Computed example of a mutant assay.
Amino acid sequence: MSLVAGRGPLGPDRAGWFSAPVAEPIVYVEPHPRRVQAVRDGRVVIDTEDALMVHRAGAALSYVFPVGETADLPTEPEEFAPGYVRVPWDAVDTWLEEGRTLVHYPPNPYHRVDCRPTRRRLRVEVPGGVLVDTDDTVIVFETSLAPRLYVAPTHVRTDLLRRTDTSSYCNYKGYATYWAAGDVQDVAWSYDDPLPETAAISGYFSFDADRCEMSAALPG
Rank of each mutant, 00 (worst) to 15 (best):
L96M: 13
T94A: 10
T101M: 12
W95T: 08
H111F: 10
V156Q: 01
V124C: 05
L96A: 11
T154N: 01
V132Q: 05
T118F: 05
P106G: 12
T118R: 09
T134L: 08
P127T: 05
A152V: 02
G99K: 10
R100P: 00
H104N: 14
V132E: 00
V87F: 12
S144K: 04
P106V: 11
P117D: 09
I139V: 15
P127D: 04
E98F: 06
V85G: 03
P147C: 08
P117I: 09
E79P: 05
F141Q: 09
I139W: 05
C115S: 11
H111P: 06
V126S: 04
T166Y: 01
P106Y: 02
L145C: 11
V113F: 07
P153Q: 03
W95F: 02
T118K: 04
V126I: 15
T143S: 15
T134A: 07
P153G: 00
N108A: 15
V124T: 06
N108K: 04
P88Q: 07
D133C: 14
R162L: 01
L131Q: 03
D159S: 13
T166P: 02
R123D: 03
H104T: 14
D90H: 15
V124S: 11
Y110F: 15
E97W: 00
P153K: 11
G129P: 07
R121I: 11
A91E: 06
D114I: 09
G129L: 12
D114A: 14
R121P: 10
S167K: 03
L149N: 04
T164V: 01
D165L: 10
H111W: 15
V124N: 04
F80V: 14
R119Q: 09
C115G: 11
T164W: 01
P153I: 11
P109M: 03
P147H: 03
E97R: 14
A146F: 02
Y110A: 10
P117N: 08
V92T: 10
A146K: 06
R100Q: 14
V140R: 05
C115L: 12
D136M: 05
L96Y: 10
V85E: 14
S167F: 03
L145E: 12
E78Y: 02
W95Y: 04
T143A: 13
W95P: 02
S168T: 11
V85F: 12
N108T: 13
R157K: 10
T143K: 07
T143L: 01
W95I: 02
I139L: 12
Y150N: 00
Y150E: 05
P117S: 11
A152D: 13
R163C: 04
R116G: 01
H111M: 13
V140F: 04
P88K: 06
L160N: 07
R120M: 14
R148Y: 04
V103H: 07
G83M: 08
T94I: 13
E142I: 02
T166W: 00
V103L: 14
C115R: 06
R148K: 14
P82T: 09
E142Y: 01
T94E: 15
E142L: 01
Y84G: 05
E97D: 10
E97N: 07
L149Q: 07
T164C: 01
V132T: 08
